[in-house]
Design a protein around this nucleic acid. Structure first.
Length: 435
RNA sequence: GGAGGGGUGGCAGAGUGGUCGAUUGCGACGGUCUUGAAAACCGUUGUGCGGGAAACCGCACCGGGGGUUCGAAUCCCUCCCCCUCCGCCA
């Protein structure tokens, strides 16, 4: 959520920043301002009435105590209609607030001023690359071919169990997935200073609103129903990312400044509807309804948000370096950034079988946008309550990492060489077809 | 699923219609005393919104929402959450 004071004081600045997102949201600012203005006018009026009522009620109390009931009754009659006016004005205020807030919840975050202005992914600047595209002296197989020949993923039976877009890992495939999760968690907890948490995979509506998934994108997520009770529908949702529960851990709290920064990492499966998304229905593991991910979350002082984002990206990059994969880091332009973010880096890993880069991590500083939505603050040494910055990044997403790993480290004989860093976890140097 | 008991300030815990935004204790912070510390004593100690240059003033908040009343932490309705016991269950 944007700061209503900022909108009030610098509406032109807010409009200009919103316009860089190409979503047309800058047009809603006038409406927000009009509602805010009306709200404040009514509030001033109703609060004055309430002050009168409070004063008279106290006088009545005093009269009653002195047994002057006739005078008390007279004062009661005097203020009786005051209550009706107050009720009516209160109702108006609530309505206006609801309108204002529902508009505010639909407004995306302002892109940072250093972020490149652009329309789409084509405008995203490349920041750096690491390593080289694998030079294979044979025709590389795709991950689908490797998964089938090495019996790592049973696509057909996954579809039988759950439908298309789901994966059934088998044998070395299941072990590889588990080994990767373990490696990533150990890396981030052991070397990067994150505290591991294991959150619920079902969350309530408040969490979804808190990080910005609701209300605007409610159609992209899975909701669940308890038993046959359709009344429970819409109360719990399958998490699209561990960001949802983990960023909400401190919702509605006032942290001590000395607690910051907080670093959390969490493994979770991620559930996404992906209705209408590009690439839906393509074979393989690139776009699926459920995938595993290790997520990184930071809660920091506002002044440190910027540098903490750089460190976060570096933490995620380390994963790819350890797995000896070629990747590039890009920064999303204003038109391509997510709803809640003020600045985002994506990490894309090279997949030789696909001959394309795959997004395996998206690292964002949402600044105080989410903190406002979830009313998370910290108290400064000076006793002032401030909104912290909340950052999130994948460290990293697994299904696509799995793809890049297979396609990069495949051998001419059809086996897959396991990078050294992963061997202690997978306990083999090479993945071959089981007997 | 059945039965019962609860949700009050950082914590504990009073308060059942009228100066209650809330007694008190603990904790925390500031001060006095002390070489220093402890103890003792004194004081301070929630959040949000609106107005104001500021000092400050007003309004709201006792799990959430609604109602009764001149007036609600207190009465009524409703929802949520927690605890205990029984049943079921990984």
């Amino acid at each position: 959520m944007l700061d209503i004071r900022l909108i009030r004081e610098k509406p032109d600045f807010v409009r200009e920043r919103l316009a860089t997102r190409c979503g047309g949201d800058e047009k809603k600012i006038d409406e927000v301002l009009a509602l805010d203005d009306r709200r404040r006018k009514i509030l001033a009026e109703v609060e004055q009435l309430k002050a009168t009522r409070n004063r008279v009620s106290k006088e009545i109390g005093a009269l009653m105590a002195q047994k002057k009931s006739a005078e008390a009754e007279a004062k009661k009659a005097e203020t009786r209609e005051l209550g009706d006016k107050i009720t009516a004005l209160d109702k108006q205020t609530v309505e206006i607030e609801q309108q204002r807030d529902s508009l505010m919840l639909q407004l995306p975050n302002l892109p940072g001023e250093s972020v490149k202005i652009g329309q789409s992914a084509a405008d995203n600047p490349e920041i750096r690359t690491s390593g080289e595209k694998a030079k294979l002296d044979f025709k590389p197989k795709t991950h689908v071919e490797l998964c089938e020949s090495l019996a790592l993923v049973d696509f057909a039976r996954a579809a039988k169990i759950s439908g298309s877009g789901f994966l059934l890992y088998t044998g070395w495939g299941a072990r590889l997935e588990r080994a990767l999760i373990q490696l990533l968690l150990d890396l981030h907890t052991g070397e990067h200073g994150y505290t591991e948490v294991s959150p619920p995979f079902l969350v309530n509506r408040d969490c979804m609103v808190g990080v910005g998934q609701f209300p605007k994108f409610a159609d992209q997520y899975y909701g669940v129903q308890e038993g046959n009770d359709s009344a429970t529908l819409g109360k719990l949702f399958l998490i699209p990312t561990a960001e949802t529960p983990v960023a909400n851990i401190h919702r509605d709290e006032i942290l001590k400044e000395s607690q910051l920064p907080i670093y959390y990492c969490a493994y979770s499966p991620c559930f996404r509807g992906e209705a209408g998304a590009a690439g839906v229905g393509t074979r393989g593991m690139i776009r699926v309804h459920q995938f595993d991910k290790v997520e990184l979350i930071k809660i920091t002082r506002p002044e440190n948000g910027r540098e903490e984002l750089e460190k976060l990206v570096a933490n995620a990059e380390r994963v790819l370096q350890l797995l000896e994969l070629h990747y590039r880091v890009i920064q999303l332009c204003t038109g391509d950034m997510g709803f809640a973010s003020s600045m985002t880096y994506d990490i894309e890993v090279w997949a030789p079988g696909q001959t394309q880069y795959l997004e395996v991590s998206s690292c964002s500083n949402c600044e105080d946008f989410q903190a406002r939505r979830m009313n998370l603050r910290f108290k400064t040494e000076g006793g002032e309550n401030k909104f912290p910055h909340i950052l999130n990044g994948s460290g990293t997403a697994l299904a696509r990492l799995f793809v890049a790993l297979l396609e990069t480290h495949q051998q001419a004989d059809g086996s897959v060489l396991v990078p050294a860093a992963l061997r202690p976890y997978l306990k083999t140097e090479k993945i071959t077809r089981p007997k």
